[in-house]
Design a protein around this nucleic acid. Sequence first.
DNA 1: AATCAAGCCAACCGCTCCGTT
DNA 2: CAACGGAGCGGTTGGCTTGAT
Length: 323
Amino acid sequence: MGRPPCCDKVGVKKGPWTPEEDLMLVSYIQEHGAGNWRAVPTNTGLMRCSKSCRLRWTNYLRPGIKRGNFTEQEEKLIVHLQALLGNRWAAIASYLPERTDNDIKNYWNTHLKKKLKKMQAAGGGEDDGAASEGGGGRGDGDGGGKSVKAAAPKGQWERRLQTDIHTARQALRDALSLDHPDPSPATAAAAATPAGSSAAYASSADNIARLLQGWMRPGGGGGGNGKGPEASGSTSTTATTQQQPQCSGEGAASASASASQSGAAAAATAQTPECSTETSKMATGGGAGGPAPAFSMLESWLLDDGGMGLMDVVPLGDPSEFF
DNA sequence: AATCAAGCCAACCGCTCCGTT
DNA sequence: CAACGGAGCGGTTGGCTTGAT
């Protein structure tokens, strides 16, 4: 349509973010809140596209983000939500508030897809939707959601969803009842926080953690000296824990944002007002080392066997909205 | 020790959706 | 009601890291 790009191509910086840029962005958002992204580059002086700013914030700087080391529960949840929702990562991410859609997407493409393929090859085929959707290899991702949308007329769609829900429900029950001593995310995260792989600032959770610690500290210098990946005791896990109190601000933002586009995510929106309670529960559970994703709604869905189904949670009035 | 290949992840791009005028 | 603009989403890519030879 010849619409102008969201930002001038010339003079816009690309590539990995520097600590200084992160700091500028964080302090701006601290002051003005997230939103009005178009104004961010001009107001902060960042030579970045507004999209880039938003992405950086939502995927890395936003408080309360857990990185790496997906627990088995999370894995299963993702697999089954993917089977249900297709490649609607934002909607899936709304069920895992500590994970970003990008993170989930990456994890799916790099790990889960392969895993499922392997399982299927081994004759398992535990999962029709998700497994059959996969294409393998890099960049061959055939959007599951889209293919569903394209393939299934509305009538079939609902029937298929019912079947999927039944399957997913069963599997979720298994997943949630997994009494997982788990590879303790805290320790696992510490172990896997790759001292080596974080040569680039962008991938250094340590840096980001320090940055945000500075932010959290009233007048704490904003982590200005938090450059260089020197080893202090702080791991990504501790950072996450400390970031949690920020939940009221942006944790909800992404959920409600995705909710605006999807019925499934709208369900998650129902959670967001309870951020201070629900999410803080997670903060203590998940952040402190225990794998406690935001299962509250799913749990109630599962526990309430006959009554409240997912259908009640997810407005299915118009399936076309859903897919 | 050097080279190559594969894996992984952060970031970009283009499209779509939604709210506003 | 239509057009426009901003924001969000999903797919894809580029570059760094790690492991194998």
